Structures are given as C-alpha cells and as structure tokens.
Simulated scan of single mutants.
Amino acid sequence: MFEEVSKILVVDDETVNLELISAIFIDSPNIMILTASDGLEAMEVLKNHTPDVIVLDIRMPRMDGIEVLDALKSDQSTSHIPVVVLSGDEKERKNALKHGANDFIPKPFDAEELKLRVLNNLQVKKYQDLIKNINEVLQKEVMKKTKELREALELAREAEYEMVVKLGMLSEFRDEETGQHIRRISHYSKLLAQLAGLSEFEQNILFYASPLHDVGKVGIPDSILKKPGPLTSEEFELMKLHTVIGGKILTSDPRFITLHAGKIIAEQHHEKWDGSGYPKGLKEREIHIYARIVAVCDVFDAMTSDRVYRPAFTVEQTLEIMKKGKGSHFDPQLIEIFFNNIDEFIKIRETFRD
C-alpha cells in the first residue's frame, strides 16, 4: 500500500530560495514541492492543488505574504492549512502570526531547521485531519444508537486521547520531556477540576484537552527551548510566542470540543491571577477556569521534574514556592484546594513516573 503524498507549497520571489527549499526535500519521496514566485501565482496554484503546508515569504511584489495570509485565512477551504512564514525581520514575523501564520523561520534560514519545522507542521496537520475525520464519523454514527456504536465511541475516545498525547509530545520531546509529563498533566487537571466542583463533563474535557497546553513549542527554536542557562529578554519574548502559536495550531470548528478547549488552555495557561502573565495580561476570572487549573498543575509538575537548566525541586520545596504565588500567580481558591489534597496529586505523580 502506497503512503499518501504530502504537498508543500513554497512561495518566494527569489528563485534561489525556491530551488534550495526544493532541494532540501529531494530525499523525501512522499513529499511533493509546489512553487510560486509571488502571492498571485500562489493563489493560482491553490485553484488546482490543496497543499498540506505552505512556506511563505513576506516581502514579495504584486501580492505580499501578509495579503496572502489574509486571503488564505478568510477562505474556509484554505484556512486550515498551516503557514510557515520566512522573514528576517522580527516585527514582520510577529505581524504574520497576528494575521494567522502558524510558525516562522528567520532569514537567512538554516536548511535543517526549515525542514524540521515544516515536517512538524505537516505532522500537526495530519493529526488535526485525523481528529476531525473521527469526529465527523462519530457524529453520523451517533444516530444509530446501538451497542456497536457505544463500543465504537469508547474506543474512539481512547484513540482521541492517545492522539492528543502524541500531539502534545511533538513539542515535549524537543523540550526533553516525556509522554508521562503529558499524562500527569491530564490526570492532575481532571482531579483538580473534580475537587473544584466542575461537572463530570468539564472534568473530561480537561482530561483530554490539557495535554495540548504546550503544543505551540513546536514553533520555538531548539537554541531557546534547550538552552541550559537563563534566557535573555529577547529569547524570552520569543519563548512567550508558544502560547500564540499553540492557539493558532488548535484553532478549529467549536464543535470539536477537545481542540477548542485545548486552544483556550494553550493561549491562557501562562496568564496570572494578578494580570502579570502573558500573552494578553488577563487577570482573575478573565482567565478561563480550564487555564487556571492547568496553570497550577503545570507549575507543580515542571518544578518537580528535571529540566535542562536545573534539577528537580522536592515536593516540599515546590509547595513552599507555589504558596508564595497564591493570589498573584495562581487562583487563590484553586491553589488552596490543591494544597489541601496534595497527597492525591503525589499519588498520580508516583503512578506516572518518568
């Protein structure tokens, strides 16, 4: 059985870049490279082809990259296609993200980094398509109301969770974390939601969506993600963009409840109760309850785990530090519930050890 061919559209007015990027994928037989020398030509190509990823230059004659982005994201038939922008200007890259770009590559680009970023976005697209297809099939099957359907629903839910975990791991394995971190966050979040009085429906939403909290890290360079020392202010500004990138990746039809909740969590889990977080500086109950719950769970797991820049803290040290964030970093009610039930969270940590 032949593996499906993935299409990558490269749009750049510099012929040498089109040739170089095409050459980067010459050893990938299941990837077809389509090229366009400017935005207008790209729109013509899109009339006959639906690419899986678009690599897009910003500065081009006739129709520049921002105009192409606006056209792509306003059209339902192309809005779901991941777009990786090429630019040597930081302001241009941030502007492109605001207009719907999913990722960026600085110019002049490193060939290996470009290939890895494009392949990462291609993998994310495949998982999104798979989850979407599963949900569409289930919506049709639910009309049958049979025992066979109930069994299929249970299996599909388990499969969805595994796909969400794998999607989360696309970023985590580059951050030297494991699938166990993803599973711990999932179980922590459901437990804290239960203790906070959320409905069983919302507990399950958090269980399935919380693993997607850091998926936007696929768009952060390894030089920042794996840096053994503290980040510079410029590097930290780039790191903060993983919340924006995660939201772009997970943007979908609201009917896909897991992806919609994952988008909220990815965008808001670094917001803080006192408004000093990012990316939007939301405060108190402006921050969605899902994100407030994941914020507590993510900090606890991060601090009690080894990182490239420091060894793990003990549980006692971690709790002492987290107490100082009550009412500033964390929702004061949620953190109090967490402290009062810490033994249950430690049991989860022991069950899903790295």
Score class of each variant (00 low, 15 high):
118 V>Q: 00
144 K>C: 07
195 L>Q: 02
145 K>E: 13
105 I>T: 05
125 K>L: 04
154 E>G: 14
117 R>C: 05
132 K>V: 09
194 Q>R: 14
193 A>G: 10
144 K>Q: 15
109 F>T: 02
123 Q>Y: 10
175 D>P: 03
126 K>E: 08
190 K>I: 04
178 T>Q: 05
165 V>Q: 06
206 L>E: 02
160 E>K: 14
145 K>M: 14
121 N>M: 01
108 P>M: 07
194 Q>Y: 11
179 G>W: 07
144 K>G: 14
141 E>D: 14
186 S>E: 11
143 M>S: 12
169 M>K: 06
166 K>A: 10
138 L>Q: 12
149 L>D: 12
113 E>T: 11
124 V>I: 15
189 S>T: 15
205 I>C: 01
164 V>T: 07
123 Q>F: 03
163 M>F: 08
168 G>Y: 00
192 L>T: 04
193 A>Q: 01
190 K>M: 11
149 L>C: 09
135 N>H: 10
133 N>I: 11
129 D>Q: 15
115 K>T: 09
148 E>L: 04
209 A>C: 08
183 R>L: 10
194 Q>G: 01
162 E>Y: 10
180 Q>K: 12
157 R>W: 05
111 A>I: 11
192 L>H: 02
197 G>A: 06
121 N>L: 02
118 V>G: 01
187 H>Y: 09
127 Y>C: 09
125 K>C: 04
196 A>L: 03
170 L>N: 00
132 K>Q: 09
198 L>R: 08
166 K>V: 04
205 I>R: 00
119 L>H: 04
184 R>S: 04
171 S>D: 07
142 V>T: 15
208 Y>A: 01
167 L>F: 09
161 Y>S: 07
144 K>L: 11
181 H>A: 07
144 K>F: 14
207 F>A: 01
152 A>M: 11
109 F>R: 10
116 L>F: 04
149 L>S: 05
184 R>Q: 07
187 H>M: 13
195 L>C: 04
139 Q>F: 07
205 I>F: 00
152 A>D: 03
126 K>G: 05
186 S>H: 02
182 I>T: 12
121 N>D: 05
185 I>N: 01
176 E>R: 10
128 Q>W: 00
173 F>H: 11
152 A>T: 11
129 D>R: 09
112 E>D: 14
207 F>E: 07
186 S>I: 03
142 V>H: 06
125 K>Y: 08
112 E>T: 15
120 N>S: 09
141 E>N: 13
176 E>Y: 15
122 L>S: 03
174 R>V: 06
194 Q>W: 08
154 E>A: 08
169 M>R: 01
116 L>M: 14
165 V>R: 03
164 V>K: 00
190 K>D: 05
138 L>S: 04
126 K>W: 02
165 V>I: 15
191 L>R: 02
180 Q>V: 01
162 E>C: 05
176 E>C: 13
162 E>S: 09
205 I>D: 00
122 L>C: 10
207 F>Y: 12
147 K>P: 06
103 D>R: 03
140 K>M: 12
116 L>Q: 06
197 G>S: 14
111 A>R: 15
194 Q>M: 09
203 Q>P: 05
208 Y>F: 11
190 K>E: 12
135 N>Q: 10
119 L>R: 08
142 V>P: 01
121 N>W: 00
172 E>M: 13
191 L>T: 03
129 D>G: 13
